[in-house]
Amino acid sequence: MPQPHGFAYEQRDGATAVVITHHGRPVTTLRGSRAERFLREVAAGDAQLVMARWTGNYKRGNERTARRHPRNRPS
Rank of each mutant, 00 (worst) to 15 (best):
54 W>D: 09
33 S>Q: 11
58 Y>C: 08
38 F>E: 07
30 L>Q: 07
7 F>R: 09
69 H>L: 07
17 A>D: 04
15 A>G: 04
44 A>P: 07
75 S>C: 05
70 P>R: 08
9 Y>E: 11
5 H>G: 08
20 I>S: 06
2 P>K: 03
38 F>M: 13
54 W>R: 15
28 T>F: 03
61 G>D: 05
53 R>V: 06
69 H>V: 04
13 D>C: 08
67 R>T: 10
61 G>S: 03
35 A>G: 10
28 T>M: 10
67 R>F: 01
32 G>T: 00
64 R>A: 14
12 R>A: 11
40 R>A: 15
62 N>C: 08
54 W>I: 06
29 T>R: 14
3 Q>W: 12
2 P>G: 01
57 N>C: 08
75 S>N: 09
59 K>E: 15
70 P>G: 06
57 N>Q: 14
65 T>F: 03
12 R>C: 04
48 Q>A: 09
63 E>W: 02
70 P>W: 05
28 T>H: 09
44 A>I: 01
46 D>P: 03
46 D>F: 03
54 W>Y: 12
66 A>R: 13
67 R>G: 02
50 V>Y: 08
68 R>E: 09
55 T>P: 11
23 H>K: 15
58 Y>T: 13
6 G>V: 12
66 A>T: 01
15 A>S: 08
12 R>V: 05
63 E>C: 00
29 T>Q: 12
60 R>S: 05
50 V>P: 00
49 L>M: 07
70 P>N: 04
69 H>P: 06
24 G>K: 09
36 E>V: 02
28 T>P: 00
49 L>A: 13
66 A>P: 07
21 T>C: 09
52 A>G: 03
22 H>Y: 15
50 V>S: 01
56 G>Y: 10
54 W>V: 11
13 D>H: 08
30 L>H: 05
43 A>L: 07
42 V>Y: 02
8 A>S: 15
21 T>N: 13
62 N>Q: 03
64 R>E: 12
25 R>Q: 14
18 V>K: 11
8 A>Q: 13
56 G>R: 07
47 A>W: 06
68 R>F: 11
53 R>Y: 13
57 N>P: 03
45 G>M: 11
40 R>I: 02
18 V>C: 11
72 N>C: 04
2 P>E: 05
73 R>Q: 14
17 A>V: 05
11 Q>C: 06
59 K>Q: 13
16 T>I: 00
74 P>E: 10
41 E>W: 06
65 T>L: 13
36 E>M: 07
44 A>M: 09
57 N>W: 10
71 R>Q: 12
56 G>E: 10
